[in-house]
Design a binder for these strands. Structure first.
Length: 483
RNA sequence: GGUCCUAUAGACUAACGGUUAGGUCACCAGCCUUUCACGCUGGCAGUAGGGGUUCGAAUCCCCUUAGGAUCACCA
């Protein structure tokens, strides 16, 4: 049987990192088995329409490298892939359920339902639709029901849960799960506006789209019995369920907006590499080996299996993500990094920056930063003359005789045959030794004059990339200014 | 509260009955050194508790505890 999985988000306007992980696992699973990964938009809640939601979703997914074989954009044989465009289907199937006695009409108002729940809460019982006392087909009778329907009375269609049924299914991650019908609510399947609820639409679409594995978040585990019941009522075969452990806040509650960034686009903006982000997210709740952390997408596909997915939730802690990002910064190809950085650089109004130069600057600085976009700030002096000089650094390293010492060194450097870092290093070393000084005594002043900062890459490597002309200008400027 | 799920260090995890309980991040120390990093070496730190089963339990079973999810005409 062909593996067909689906990622079925509701369009909320942004992609949640938990959603990305679910999408990613679906994608990895499908690719691992040479199957298909499908994107379906679950927009059956008309009260929660968000402008451009679908575009944003797909943008983030594409950024991460999760691609779909069938989706609203690329199409496919089982479309449409947007639930609001499949409206007629749901009504048709709901009627089928009505006819075979698996569902029934109910006429209760929101107020009546609220009152029922309140009563139950007070009595200390779990809130659950009581079809023996509420206004529905059973309490009203067939004739009265028909009359109300014909009169156009607002109504919903509910699932008739067999009270004594023992509902069981096997979850690929959690094993056998058994629930009794008594604990399952008579779920509304078709709302009074004619739209289906998630439960109905989801089951119908998964069946019609021939989904083989339903891989989704653990929050769906409690409602899975309803879905199993629906498959049975239709006489359809259940897909294989796999409920993923939750992503958690630091306080171990379900990862939420309140406690920090959860939108993938926020992490894009912060400057994380997609390679690092995907790598990190993939390893939250699943681990292929004990002794390895870095995986490319292809390697993840190769290694992925549902059996090794954890059962317990994972705290989404970005400390390790930062480390991973720095690892990728060190190993990603220079050309790729340069392409990524160029647009960012343009915003800084630095004078003419060319790719070759940017490349060498990235190479110079990448070992001491975590994010690529730190370069224009951390290494601003590579693109512009120092505007300020760290006072603490001056106080610490600029002694009384430093000006004289540096003047002499500058002259030696001015006569350098070339500007390779080995050459300038040798010149400086020779000078220092002949003057009875230490390298430190001149390197710090040099760094100060050239960069204005106390922190940076190796001094002579920095000078090489800056170029002789630029270095001499900065050195002369500083000396003149201070004498 | 009902139902369900889960439990290895601060975080992510490995060990599918037999290991001195392993790795990574973070943290600490040392080395390297030209500042800051990288890197290298070492260190701190864990099987929630209690009962069983077994020659032997982190691992299987039960209870307790703790945490979580879910109980909408949201998904």
């Amino acid at each position: 049987m062909e593996v067909r999985v689906r990622f079925a988000p509701s369009p909320t306007g942004y992609l949640h990192v938990g959603g990305l992980r679910t999408a990613l696992y679906n994608y990895l699973f499908a690719k691992h088995h040479g199957g298909k990964c499908i994107l379906r938009i679950e927009d059956t809640d008309r009260t929660r329409f968000v402008e451009n939601a679908q575009e944003n979703l797909i943008k983030s997914l594409t950024w991460a490298g999760v691609e779909f074989d069938e989706s609203p954009e690329v199409g496919g044989d089982y479309g449409p892939y947007i639930q609001s465009q499949r409206f007629d289907l749901y009504t048709k199937y709901a009627n089928e359920l009505l006819e075979n006695g698996s569902a029934y009409y109910a006429f209760d108002t929101a107020e009546e339902l609220d009152a029922m729940r309140e009563r139950q809460q007070k009595a200390g019982i779990a809130p659950k639709y009581d079809r023996t006392v509420m206004r529905n087909e059973f309490t009203l009778g067939k004739e009265e029901t028909k009359k109300l329907i014909d009169a156009g009375t607002a109504c919903v269609i509910r699932l008739k849960v067999p009270l004594n049924a023992e509902i069981r299914f096997t979850d690929a991650i959690r094993g056998d799960v058994v629930v009794t019908g008594r604990d399952v609510d008579d779920q509304i399947l078709l709302k009074s506006d004619g739209f289906p609820t998630y439960h109905l639409a989801n089951v119908i679409d998964d069946h019609l789209m021939q989904i083989s594995h339903v891989i989704r978040g653990e929050e769906w585990l409690p409602s899975t019995p309803k879905h199993v019941l629906l498959y049975q009522a239709f006489g359809w075969e259940c897909p294989q369920f796999a409920h993923l452990p939750l992503l958690l806040n630091k306080d171990k509650t379900k990862l939420s907006k309140r406690q920090g960034s959860v939108a993938v686009e926020d992490f894009v903006e912060k400057g994380y590499f997609k390679e690092a982000f995907v790598n990190f997210i993939a390893l939250l709740g699943w681990n292929p080996t004990a002794d390895r952390e870095i995986f490319t997408m292809d390697e993840l596909i190769q290694a992925f299996n549902l059996e090794k997915v954890n059962k317990s939730g994972a705290v989404f802690d970005t400390q390790k993500l930062d480390w991973m990002n720095s690892q990728y910064l060190k190993t990603l190809p220079l050309d790729y990094l340069t392409e990524l950085l160029m647009p960012t650089l343009e915003k800084f109004n630095f004078e003419k920056v060319c790719k070759e130069y940017v490349s060498s600057v990235i190479n110079l600085l990448k070992e001491r930063i975590t994010f690529l976009n730190e370069i224009p700030v951390f290494g601003n002096y590579m693109f512009e003359k120092p505007k300020t000089y760290e006072q603490d650094y001056i106080d610490k390293h600029w002694k009384e005789n430093t000006t004289e010492i540096m003047k002499k060194l500058i002259e030696k450097l001015r006569n350098a045959a070339d500007w390779k870092h080995e050459t300038t290093h040798d010149i400086t070393k020779a000078y220092v030794e002949s003057s009875g000084l230490k390298l430190k005594d001149v390197i710090h002043p040099l760094r100060l004059m050239l960069t204005g900062k106390s922190v940076g890459a190796g001094m002579f490597e920095t000078m090489e990339i800056l170029g002789k002309e630029e270095c001499m200008e900065r050195l002369d400027y500083f000396i003149n200014k201070n004498s």
